[in-house]
Design a protein around this nucleic acid. Structure first.
Lengths: 203, 203, 203, 203
DNA sequence: TATGAATGAGTTTTCATTCAT
DNA sequence: TATGAATGAAAACTCATTCAT
């Protein structure tokens, strides 16, 4: 039973992976189910064994891909920021690392687009155990520094939005400003937001 | 001849307006050209007299709708901020007024979505004379205060991104935070970004 | 306008006619919309201009075909029975002529099958002006002979059911009895039903 | 081995029973093999262990269901008519009882529809021993009364057709006439057919 | 300019049946 | 016997676009 289960999941992931490739190359609306099954090496009907219809696949793909990527990015950023001496240094390294990750995962951005925010947004809601642990790890330092849990959630949301919105076009189009041109401003603006948030919370 | 011109423009606007309604109700990909011509009360062929194809309509619609709305929002915000005593007060009133406008034009957000940024982004590029004049008016105060033109463009971009990204879900979904809950943070974060940008620019 | 209208109706009839041929050759469920459009010499999409979907075509075809055939059969039967001296002779000739017509239109039976009854059944309800006139003509003799309108409707229904049910398999399969073997019984049984009906109505 | 046999038959009946339910609810062409196996709680492949294909199931189902119902109806009708004094009374009670049975088994009519006649028609051919015995029992009285075997077969066919055709819509749709409205006519018409048939046979 | 019937390539989806386990 | 994942041919339907009037 568990063998069968995992085999099914394995095939499902294979389909998602093929679809993901095609979506990147041709965009979602120009990719037919037919293209996906051909790329997956499965029969047309098999697709409908795993997904109710095309939009079911899209939904699952976006959630899966953006979730995975986001966790991966957070993990990398958190690990690089681990040895920071104080909170300000921690945030600086973390944000820079996050931008690096976004650059590295630029292909995800193409497909997942606005939907990345879907997961960023769900982040404080801990949509899965890994994500929860990560979020706790990252924000823990702020809790120790005296930020309230509520303030942290709001600030995290705001900063993630700022970073992803500002980076999105910079990374995918390089317009109207390149990412390296914008990077110092993003970092420094994020820090300002965090500092400001702390001041407001104490008041 | 000018009468003809305006008649043509009039019909074109009618088509855009009908399409806009449908896009809001059913989303772009679920709206057929057929639906649009029916709603416009014109014949199928006529559509292609005014637009090269469907994507031409979409492009023009998004540009038109978001451009118009944005100018309107900017105008309102600028007028409300006009009497502010200092730069900080000016920015505060302006940002609050901008959020109010976004709330008021929430229906535009639905259709134009991520594409609002398209125009926000094009802003410093002065995509039309009105817009250019507006942008000059709004940012003029910062120029006088000693910000460089370059810094202003970057900061304007960043702040607009921050405001629109953070407001988008708050206004359209009310999740994960409501707009009024987020508003003080947005304002204060924006001010922090502006202040920070000034400091960095001087250095 | 009337030219266009009739042209559209003309094409619609052409599609119905092609479908009818195929339904007879291959049966309804083995005939694809694709076969029909090929046989009609039109494009796939055109089909959907005239019929909402396949079942819409079937519905319209059955109604049209069975209606037309039935009127034709009634007309023939009525004309052959016209000179009959008394009611009994009239009915005898009429019923025999009706059976002849059913034999002649045996191909309609194949497609329209049980649905012939649909129209037979609708008969007293005068589903169209031609049919109404015909029905009035045929049953008029019985009205004069003293049958009430109510009795006529019921008897007509019963006799038509008897004739079509008993003839259906006899004509299409020749089993378990051939039509000529059954014909005298059907005629005589029908007359018996009519006579009996008259007696009951008087009592 | 006989235990196995009956187990096999048991499962076969379960499949037929499930299919029967679905056919009633959704009609034959809208019921997929998949629906049937799900409703039967068996695996897809198992279906093909018991039936060659879908049409094999349909054939067996119709035969089984209509045969069973028909025998049941005949049995009831024959038993209620058993004590009748003369042939006319016997026929009257029998026909009325048959109509009652059709009303009671109306659900069978829905599925078996026109196909009920298939079995009615097969009746004189004694498609199984039970049925043969029943038919012999019912028609025996007519044989004694002087009807020839041939006449009996033809009359039985005709009368069954008359009754089932006339009752079908009356019972399932109540249109254009209700069954109770039609019942006296059906009975009396049937008797007329029988009487007439006797006369013709003697001549 | 305006019309709307016609097009047909392109998509999605279904489903009876097979077959390895 | 029993299973159910896999198959893929076949079917239904959509829709942007063209073109004769």
């Amino acid at each position: 039973m568990p063998a069968d289960q995992s085999k099914k999941l394995e095939k499902k992931r294979r389909i998602i992976e093929s679809a993901y490739q095609l979506f990147r190359e041709k965009n979602i609306y120009n990719t037919a189910v037919d293209d996906i099954v051909k790329a997956s090496g499965i029969a047309r009907g098999t697709f409908y064994l795993y997904f109710k219809d095309k939009s079911d696949l899209i939904e699952q793909l976006v959630f899966y891909k953006s979730g995975e990527s986001m966790k991966e990015m957070m993990r990398q950023a958190a690990s690089r920021a681990a040895d920071a001496e104080d909170l300000e240094a921690y945030a600086t390294v973390f944000i820079n690392a996050l931008i690096d990750s976004l650059i590295e995962h630029r292909d995800v951005l193409t497909v997942v687009n606005k939907n990345l925010s879907v997961v960023f947004r769900a982040f404080p809601a801990f949509y899965d155990e890994d994500a929860e642990a990560l979020y706790r790890g990252i924000t823990g330092k702020f809790l120790e520094a005296g930020y309230t849990k509520d303030t942290i959630d709001r600030l995290a949301y705001l900063v993630f939005e700022l970073i992803s919105a500002a980076s999105y076009d910079a990374i995918t189009y390089g317009k109207p400003f390149g990412i390296e041109e914008l990077r110092p401003l993003i970092v420094s603006a994020s820090l300002a937001v965090l500092r400001d948030g702390f001041g407001r919370a104490e008041a």
